[in-house]
Write a protein that binds this DNA or RNA. Structure first.
Lengths: 333, 333
DNA sequence: TTGAAAGCGCTAACAT
DNA sequence: ATGTTAGCGCTTTCAA
């Protein structure tokens, strides 16, 4: 058996309550007593049992994190932001991958509640009614990171996807391509919708009409980008600029283009989205939209701590600033 | 207040024990009773409290995972393998970043124990005596993933780093470069030592002598690779092949070389290590050592489940097979 | 400043 | 097949 608070109390000739007080830094303990207790804690090698503490106090100092895929360069960066702030506020993180699978997402949320997390950070493209339902009846605070629910009723941290996509597309248009091609995933999410909306807005502003042939819906992967490049090259008289919904797609497009003897950006320009570390790990380096993944995670966690502390929060839906960074996959303008 | 097992018992006219039995799938319950209980669980929206269960049963179905940096493409892949197998065995994961900081590592291990994890998976290059001490006196099973302690007394899952590095270097030598350059991090870890030993072995086999000028110790980052390329180019009459200790360094080297007008692999060859997703996301695609990160994580977790189940394990130090994959950053031989 | 004692919600003998 | 009853190790009133 392990040494318990009771053992310490007995050995130090004080009550459990006193030991508890010194362990928890309660100031109402005479220095001499504190010292005595601390000594026997040291001597016995006492280590508080967080589970027992959790049961008694109804706080686990643990937050749940549901993430689509931690091996994704995008989400792992977010997770890092979450964990750093969590650590700062003395929380630990239970991390689970959902693969954007609805059943699994719902099940995971429930598991997190069973484990009595003090709060939950949720990431996942498609938030249906059942998700919202389950999240809104949560016994603990919830925050969405880089995720938007249609009702916009759950606290969240994001950037202005529409505006960002609009700016990126506009830049390509200004650079001389009237109707850039858009390559994205065929995902049915609010974030994806907004990016598309921004693209459309820029196109309409310049051309009035959106040519569906120039919108390629595939998957959010490097390979899809490579494939998309071939498709693009097969379009007769294709536009000379491509806006990709993620950096990973953009990288694929660049390489797919290069594999076909096309020079980027001389022959064709490519613009990405996210500014993952990948963006500077290509030649030419990728012009892209800076989505501050780490910060989104960090701010989401910070927001959650406020809710957990029952602080009043001014704005539940945080919109972080984005940026446009021009590197070498687009022409200098 | 939440609904407890006691409420369910009362409403269903059975004892807590019976409710506990149906919740835990104990077969010793009359089907009719089970159904009745299940109904009232449903009706009351009862959700078992895992913390209370943990206190009573001394099992939390949670394992700790200490990782240097989840945002690293290498470790996040490992983490994914861990979580998948954990999920398969009904465990959840408490994930914490250590940044390879000794103080933090030691503190995290302790926190994991306080939280009463049922097991611990540890990753981290430098395992000193205090780590070994703390890990060996662990109250729960521990497994190292892609990590080696000098005493080799803690269960672990790895590949044969020395052999892998030897093979990679030899391949470069066979391709015509008598003494390839080695670019690695200045990290003081067993894994790093072994890779270096493999490199040295191959060099000695071909030349008898190792030229220290051809060993560049920097950091494990893309940027370091880029910088290393310049250094290499500054070496008079430098070798025409580079073996990098990680893919990320290799990518940097390739781009640094290309930025200086060098063609890969025509002018210089580059070989990586790990086979992260990065390897196929460069042009030319990267020849590299396949270290099965996902599998290492998965096997480590599987190993841990065996220990947690008190199964007897034949070999505590698992060595997974590696592979050499030739892509386009080396010449066809 | 300290102690006593009642839980927190559940599991696990032990009975029946 | 089901119920009774101790705890699990800690926090938290409430008293003193």
């Amino acid at each position: 058996m392990n040494v318990t608070i009771y053992d310490v109390a007995r050995e130090a000739n004080v009550s459990m309550a006193t030991v508890s007080r010194v362990v928890n830094g309660n100031p109402n303990v005479k220095p001499a007593t504190r010292k005595k207790v601390l000594n026997t804690i040291e001597r016995l090698g006492y280590r508080p049992n967080a589970v027992a503490r959790g049961l008694a106090s109804k706080k686990t100092t643990t937050v749940g994190v549901i993430i689509p895929d931690i091996s994704s360069i995008f989400f792992s960066e977010l997770a890092r932001g979450i964990d750093d702030i969590a650590t700062m506020y003395k929380y630990n993180i239970i991390l689970s991958n959902s693969d954007q699978n609805k059943e699994k997402e719902l099940r995971l949320i429930n598991t997190m509640f069973e484990k009595q997390v003090d709060g939950l950070i949720y990431m996942g493209a498609t938030i249906g009614e059942d998700h919202v339902q389950q999240l809104k009846t949560s016994p603990v605070p919830v925050a969405l990171a880089a995720t938007i629910d249609a009702t916009e009723t759950i606290p969240s941290v994001n950037i202005d996807y529409e505006q960002a996509a609009y700016e990126a597309t506009s830049l390509l248009i200004e650079n001389g391509t009237k109707h850039p091609i858009y390559v994205t995933g065929a995902e049915d999410s609010v974030v994806n919708e907004r990016k598309y909306a921004g693209y459309v807005k820029a196109i309409k502003e310049a051309n009035k009409e959106v040519n569906e042939e120039y919108v390629i819906k595939t998957e959010f992967s490097y390979e899809s980008g490579v494939d998309a490049a071939s498709k693009i090259l097969n379009i007769t008289d294709h536009p000379k600029a491509v806006f990709a919904a993620t950096d990973e797609i953009a990288l694929g497009v660049i390489h797919g283009l290069q594999d076909n003897g096309i020079n980027v950006p001389e022959d064709m320009e490519v613009f990405g989205f996210d500014n993952t570390r990948l963006a500077t790990m290509v030649r030419p380096t990728l012009s892209t939209v800076v989505q501050p993944m780490y910060d989104i995670g960090a701010v989401a966690m910070r927001l959650l701590t406020k809710f957990m502390n029952k602080e009043t929060v001014e704005d539940q839906n945080v919109v972080l600033p984005h940026q446009i960074v021009k590197r070498n996959s687009t022409k200098q303008s």
